[in-house]
Design a binder for these strands. Sequence first.
DNA 1: TATTGTTTTAAACTGCATTTAAAACGAAAA
DNA 2: TTTTCGTTTTAAATGCAGTTTAAAACAATA
Lengths: 219, 219
Amino acid sequence: MHHYPTSFLNNTIFQNIMAKNKNTEQKIFDAATELFIEKGVDRTSVRDIASKAGINLALMNYYFRSKENLFDAIFTNLVKKNTKDLVKILDSDLELDEKIKQYVAAYIDILLKNPLLVSFFMAILHRSREKITEMEVVSLLYGRDKFTQQIIDEGKKGNIRRTDPTHFYVDMISMITFPFAIRPMIMDKNELNDEEFIAFIHERKQHITEMLLKSIKPC
Amino acid sequence: MHHYPTSFLNNTIFQNIMAKNKNTEQKIFDAATELFIEKGVDRTSVRDIASKAGINLALMNYYFRSKENLFDAIFTNLVKKNTKDLVKILDSDLELDEKIKQYVAAYIDILLKNPLLVSFFMAILHRSREKITEMEVVSLLYGRDKFTQQIIDEGKKGNIRRTDPTHFYVDMISMITFPFAIRPMIMDKNELNDEEFIAFIHERKQHITEMLLKSIKPC
DNA sequence: TATTGTTTTAAACTGCATTTAAAACGAAAA
DNA sequence: TTTTCGTTTTAAATGCAGTTTAAAACAATA
């Protein structure tokens, strides 16, 4: 009979564990994060993590139960840390135009700053696409109740063309996100280096905003 | 010293091998294809493939050298079979409007008909994003020389707004492709069943076309 | 019939995540 | 202080993955 420590994921008593297990658990968490960034999730073994964290192999399983769990913990942590602003913008009382502009720019900046976020997302989608619906934290990346209502309302008022909010939202996140997923392809086909790709992505902030606004502008 | 059979990938003498090795090589290929569809690439082991094909474990490596290679062969085959039309449309002499409309519809139909294409693409992007640039066959999914020129020309002639063809093309494939990648998320958040999701995707044909055309319409 | 190259086989090898069972540790109770 | 008991750590084993090896079976042909 094993006694597993309270999970990292169970953050109601997050503070308490941290006081106690800070060293080992945090060491595993940090080492894994660094290695996942550096080599990708699949190409880092738990032995790598253990040796980088300076702990015994079995401790990874003792604290996180599995590599998959550790991955989820890191991903959840990363998403939570980075998407607060995004949700705030969508739920704000900004004018629709300004809201879209800010959302697009903020989302792109987040993805530029956190390459891990992109590759984690890809990893989850790849591993089992269904799983993503089970991760509550993903709502933070696809939650838009107020925004949806706003589009419907503005359409009724005649301030914009009547627009299907689902299509509109899918368009928006597709144009923002997908280029990061196919980054090597875009760089290769357009002969861009890293710097130029980043510039291209920055251009897209304005480009996407214009595209979206033009599509809802009333005739 | 081993004597590997001429590779499946080397299709200059494709016919010849097929006459000889049809049984075993094709059995492996077919079994793997079915299992990859059914359970996903990572969740099918080479032992699964061998037992489904009714052959010895080592034969998979004898014919395809590695599981990765087998995967590539299947992917390449699948892309080649399905993207002929797509390239034809982009390279045709159609009017820009009509060309965009046909391309969007054809691309979406292909992805609807071949779920494997989507998950294979994700698998490659996930495994090593860089690898995708090495697969010549991917040009078929991202090749647009004549199309690019056409957008520039029409812009100069004043038939459309002057438009950056790279952004335009990225927008187009993002809006077409990405929704398939996040299918479970869209279904979950909008409470769609399979049938409704497919209907949603069909709607997108017209939606995306309108979106793209509106963005290049001259003021 | 003997030879040579090809195809198939059984078994081993390597590296991986995970599990086990026991040992070490630390704090609280006796 | 010593005992006790839950927690943390350890070394070793387990089982499954892809791949490799070396020999056997087979087929064609000289």
